[in-house]
């Protein structure tokens, strides 16, 4: 049994310690917001927070995550009201939406560490997340928007 702390809840899962965290989250815990895109840490669709870092869960074994704090898109906010989620809605960022969980999880780390990111910072933080629909321009605008909202006191 491996203990996974996901979104503040403890789960004891019976999984191969080598199973990537992605599949444990999706197939065992049933949290399907975290996506499979490439299985090779290339696309970022599977990004979750492991002790606050935006790890690619498709190459992170459950053994690494055991006992650590994991946050998935379902745990980014209680009411879909993280400044990024609000900004994503306001600017109609998603198209198909499949990569957006990963985009948001990456952006959340950026905003936490840099409340006022420049375009260059966004390039540096967000280039690990592929969007085949090509929503990059809107992701960029929405990060700026969320940063402004955060500065104006929206809760995180």
């Amino acid at each position: 049994m491996i203990t996974l702390n996901v979104n503040g809840q403890r789960h004891n899962v019976d999984a191969d310690p080598n199973m990537p965290l992605l599949w444990a989250i999706r197939d065992i815990l049933g949290l399907t917001g975290t996506k499979y895109g490439c299985g090779a840490a290339q696309c970022g669709a599977c990004t979750v927070h492991l002790n606050g870092e935006a790890v690619r869960s498709c190459v992170t074994k459950v053994s690494r995550a055991a006992g650590q704090q994991i946050v998935t898109i379902e745990g980014l906010s209680v009411a879909n009201d993280h400044p990024l989620q609000l900004a994503w809605n306001e600017l109609n960022v998603p198209q198909c939406g499949y990569c957006q969980s990963g985009q948001l999880m990456s952006a959340a780390v950026l905003l936490r560490e840099n409340p006022n990111p420049t375009d260059q910072d966004i390039d540096d933080a967000m280039s690990g997340n592929i969007c085949r629909c090509g929503t990059y321009q809107r992701v960029r605008a929405a990060i700026h928007k969320a940063a402004a909202m955060q500065r104006e006191g929206a809760k995180i």
């Binding site: 898109i73 379902e74 879909n80 809605n89 306001e90 109609n92 998603p94 939406g97 957006q100």
Partner: peptide, 23 residues
């Protein structure tokens, strides 16, 4: 009008069910 899309909330909180999410 450039209205906000109805499916965005589902696509920002992991709620949208894609094919791979069907169980």
């Amino acid at each position: 009008k450039p209205l906000q899309k109805l499916d965005t909330p589902l696509k920002t909180n992991g709620g949208a069910i894609f094919g791979l999410d069907k169980k």
